[in-house]
């Protein structure tokens, strides 16, 4: 395998939320196959700036798959062609020399484009504010293991808590539904004794907030699970569905 490749990039350009966007075609030359996808974009942006052109705006922070900031739909797949990783963990060796690579932002009404490839995921913050937390009284830190939690529950809670809130589920979903994200948060907290106390109000409030943001509904197509960088299972969606049903049909 050669160490450098040439690519034709189709980069989404959009000046602002209400502007009309278009694709910029850019010939990326001599891209190292050892580079990450975001490093490749850094190189492209350096070249654009050297030519006196505007660089392409994209979100990133930790660049190690933890923060959930990177939000690129690469060749039609959120976070690109590799499974179980974020775009920043994607390497250029996954691409063939001469390939055309389409790079688009998350597309959803609830995630308006701020600029180019950057979207506003404030909708997720508002859903969290509606119930994605536990109320704990202040005071000294509780003793470790003072609350016994069965190993299986701790594991299941941890699996759901792996969600980094990147929004790939929304981007992948044919209906731009946020079910996997909300379900992961609902599941994570209701598995633990600290969160179980408020699980009824939590699921009602978070689903209400989700609906108000204008996300689509779930068709059980499974794109979210397939594209989630943390491989969160759709069984969490079923858990949210039954918690919501139970919470709706029972009094507090």
């Amino acid at each position: 395998m050669s160490d450098t490749i040439n690519l034709t990039l189709k980069l989404w350009q959009q000046k602002g939320p209400n502007e009309k966007g278009r694709f910029l075609t850019y010939e990326a030359k001599n891209i190292s196959t050892h580079a990450s996808f975001l490093e490749m974009l850094d190189v492209v942006n350096d070249e654009l700036m050297e030519k006196g052109e505007e660089p392409i705006a994209f979100d990133h922070d930790c660049r190690e798959g933890i923060c959930g900031m990177c939000s690129l739909v690469i060749n039609g797949r959120p976070h690109g062609p590799d499974g179980g990783i974020t775009a920043c963990q994607l390497h250029m060796r996954k691409f063939k020399d001469g390939e055309t690579v389409w790079i688009e932002p998350w597309r959803a009404k609830a995630f308006p484009v701020v600029r180019d490839l950057v979207v506003d995921r404030g909708a997720f913050d508002r859903i969290i504010q509606a119930g994605g937390f536990v109320n704990v009284n202040n005071g000294g830190a509780a003793d470790a293991n003072a609350l016994p939690i069965p190993k299986r529950n701790a594991e299941a809670a941890m699996d759901a808590a792996a969600c980094i809130g990147c929004g790939a589920c929304v981007a992948a979903c044919r209906n731009a539904s946020a079910m996997l994200f909300v379900a992961a948060k609902v599941s994570h907290l209701s598995f633990l004794p600290q969160g179980a106390v408020e699980k009824r109000e939590r699921v009602l409030n978070m689903v209400k907030a989700m609906d108000e943001e204008g996300f689509g509904s779930c068709t059980n197509g499974g794109q979210c699970e397939a594209e989630c960088p943390k491989e969160i299972s759709v069984s969490n969606i079923a858990r949210m569905n039954r918690e919501y049903l139970a919470a709706s049909l029972s009094s507090s």
Partner: peptide
């Protein structure tokens, strides 16, 4: 309505 602007390329698996 939840996705007013469509993707140019859409290949999400599932």
């Amino acid at each position: 309505a939840a996705r007013p602007e469509k993707y140019a390329v859409y290949k999400a698996s599932g």
